[in-house]
Write a protein that binds this DNA or RNA. Structure first.
Lengths: 331, 331
DNA sequence: GTGAAAGCGCTAACAG
DNA sequence: CTGTTAGCGCTTTCAC
């Protein structure tokens, strides 16, 4: 097979200088119409593509954007990635996805790899702890922290969810329905999101004159498995009659556990999930949940990226989107 | 901010030649231990990362892999991407995801962009039609066609699903349950997958002495929307009493339509979906479906990639994984 | 054990 | 309007 088609090969081919070819292909004015047409024709015919590597080496910037997510098997993250990918498509950005599984070590690896390819920006759900000054890897990148926020030594944008009021609504609803043993399963408070949600839950409970029993609260690194386990354990001993979830995967896991146990919701257990995958509307006649504006988030993320990549630069922003309590059958 | 750290900047820094630095960083034997340590220390301190662009320009190959999917909002594709991404993480490959929405034009764009960054391989769910000889874009890439297959002018691997027997099982089951007006909603027969599934359905029906009524068959470019519409239309006129889906998104859409209409399954309509997202087990007491080995598929895809990237090269293979009919409550 | 040169594909900055 | 040169970061080849 023929070698890579380059401006030089085209130039040789046409008996002209590679500079002329470059100019023709870049719509530079100083090229005769005739030459330009010849070059364009030949390039098209040979299937020429500009080498991104060469461009990058000249410091023109790759148009690479990184996306770090804990997982894709979760309708919220999948939708976010989907919408973001579509936006990247439009803006001709290359989207590299890395899954961190919320492990700092994997996150570090991923960021390293993004630096190798000189990604211009990253959107990331930061993992719990980053080790000592490891955030160095983020220096050369424009960073958008998504969902959670970790203190960094330099400016970074953040795209967060204001779920406090929604969680409060959920608690109020449960209390009004007569529940007093309300459990909570949420992300580890080391995570900013976990901290915030637990605080919202606690405040809401106290606002209603209920104390938050430690036995009815489960927090740990968030995962499907953790959600399952926690829900099961809330059914033992000082049994909770209602539960509020504070995390996407946790919610899926806890729900799965409820279904596996054949619990009637809200009969046996009032259930409030987190995130609103399409099937929540249909399972058990409807799962009540904290619903989040995924698409708005993704579009905003894309907008931030766009601003980043066009180099306007300094627009570091923290934006919070409100969540809402969606009442269905399960609570 | 300091400029990019390069072997040259480190060399200058240490008062040695950039070649020595290069050697030290590549574990070349011909470097004194002392020098090597000094270089490694400085590199670590400054947070040096090898420039992927420079490597690529030397023809060392980027370790970039492309993944083209119609969408990510679909548990099957999301799981596939997730497992594949994890595998890429392990093998230090960069995974670039492009969503095509099954539009040839978007597919073409995506492939073009992958050529720009000199991706080494692509795993793609090929879109319907590629226009005239547009497959040129695939020339420089190692291609793995996934789910569907399009004839190409050069060798390419394929990772397919053998769903014929599973579809036959589904039909047999429905017939045994007394259904004769069995509808089918599937992908356009221009797609190899659509063709195969429709053929399997037809053969199974005929094998049972049933004729396939054209009014009970819906085929079109597969999408959630199409699934919805088709299901609704099957309820009109010469009403189907059962339906078999032949596509992931189609299945989700059709199911949504059933639920929205409040249909009892199998009471009002026996339903066989396609693909097995976790919630199928819980909706309506269980959705019967054609279940596919997602993880095995993804792992095989990763294995093929690995073979591709390590350059063994000529290992072009067509692998078919069997699907299975999973009987639950809905049919 | 170390270094200098060359070249990968491209474009900015100068010649002509 | 067109061509030459230089250099982005790196490694291979060939000196020393």
């Amino acid at each position: 097979m023929s070698d890579r088609v380059t401006i030089k090969s085209i130039a040789r081919d046409l008996g002209i200088s590679h500079m002329t070819v470059s100019r023709a292909l870049s719509n530079h004015p100083n090229v005769s119409e005739e030459t330009r047409r010849a070059v364009l024709a030949r390039a098209e015919e040979l299937g020429y593509v500009r080498s991104a590597a060469a461009k990058a080496m000249r410091g023109d910037g790759t148009r690479i954007v990184g996306l770090l997510l804990p997982t894709l098997v979760n309708e919220f993250y999948a939708r976010f990635a989907d919408t973001l990918a579509a936006a990247c498509e439009e803006k001709a950005l290359h989207l590299i996805i890395h899954l961190t599984n919320d492990e700092p070590q994997k996150e570090r690896q991923a960021l390293l790899r993004l630096r190798e390819v000189q990604a211009g920006a990253v959107i990331m759900v930061p993992a719990p702890a980053a080790g000592e000054g490891e955030d160095r890897n983020l220096r050369s990148l424009r960073v958008v922290q998504f969902i959670r926020q970790r203190p960094l030594e330099f400016p970074a944008s953040a795209l967060l969810i204001g779920d406090g009021p929604a969680i409060e609504d959920a608690v109020n609803h449960l209390v009004a329905a007569g529940h007093s043993k309300i459990g909570y399963i949420g992300a580890d408070p080391v995570l900013s999101s976990g901290r915030g949600r637990l605080a919202a839950f606690t405040e809401a409970m106290e606002g209603k004159g209920k104390t938050v029993a430690a036995e009815l609260v489960r927090t740990a690194p968030p995962s499907f498995e953790m959600g399952c386990r926690s829900l099961v354990s809330l059914l033992e001993g000082k049994r909770a009659t209602a539960v509020v979830c504070g995390g996407f995967e946790i919610s899926s896991g806890a729900l799965e556990a409820c279904l596996r146990q054949g619990l009637d919701m809200p009969g046996d257990m009032a259930f409030v999930g987190y995130g609103d995958p399409a099937h929540y509307a249909w399972i058990n006649g409807g799962i009540s949940t904290i619903s989040l504006p995924v698409n708005a988030l993704a579009r905003e993320a894309a907008a931030i990226l766009d601003r980043s990549m066009t180099g306007d630069g300094e627009g570091v922003a923290t934006i919070t989107f409100p969540a809402a309590f969606l009442k269905r059958r399960s609570a």
